[in-house]
Design a protein around this nucleic acid. Structure first.
Lengths: 110, 110
DNA sequence: TACATTTATGTCTAATCTGACATATAATGG
DNA sequence: CCATTATATGTCAGATTAGACATAAATGTA
């Protein structure tokens, strides 16, 4: 449960380091988290584009609203498998997913 | 266990349909399987490029040789999470993964 | 404010996955 | 042919996850 708990931590106040530093993630772990977040954001975008509520999406996925909320929040209890399956079920194409995963250029490190 | 078993089935003889037909996969399921296979192949390629045995890779991943074999075989018991984490641990970059997932153009439907 | 709708969070149980082990089946070299 | 090494397959106990439910928090609106 350690990993979940740690990933779930949010700063209760100010911190000086980066999130990656604060959460003590290795490079690979950080890359993996970013990977998941990209998928979550894609799911949100897809839902927004189709103008559906989480309840409606849940119905299409044969899942529950709470799980959809967690998927969009990139909750630690959500796997990449679930995200990818869900994206396909909502009509995403492989290239959409590939595009989403391609790293975005950050301006000024932000 | 049904899904695993079904996906594990191999034709005992000749069949007329496509694998997708034979295994009765929906479009989304087929897309997901292809997605996983692409990752498995990337893992194999990465191992080959580094000229490592499965045992050596297992050591780096803190896993076992049998699991590495299953990852490369895209075994149903292997998740996309495990594949992606492993790729990152072996030094793959996000864009490598995105590239691997981008659908290849098939010639003559093959 | 009150009410409806939507989204977020916490927590269960059944189902699934992971590393490990044993062992089978190639593949390679004397 | 016999070893040795590499890879594949089957199985299991412990760990993790999925859907569901309850409920909180946020958002919208009359």
């Amino acid at each position: 449960m350690n990993r979940q708990k740690r990933a779930k931590l949010k700063a209760g106040g100010w911190t000086v380091g980066t999130p990656r530093e604060f959460l003590k993630l290795s490079n690979e772990e950080a890359a993996f988290v970013e990977f998941k977040v990209a998928l979550s954001e894609t799911l949100q975008a897809l839902r927004a584009a189709q103008e559906l509520s989480q309840v409606e999406v849940a119905k299409r996925l044969r899942s529950s609203q709470s799980r959809v909320a967690k998927m969009e929040a990139s909750d630690p209890s959500v796997t990449v498998d679930l995200l990818v399956r869900s994206l396909f079920k909502l009509g995403a194409q492989p290239r959409d997913i590939a595009n989403a995963l391609r790293p975005r250029r950050k301006v000024g490190g932000i």
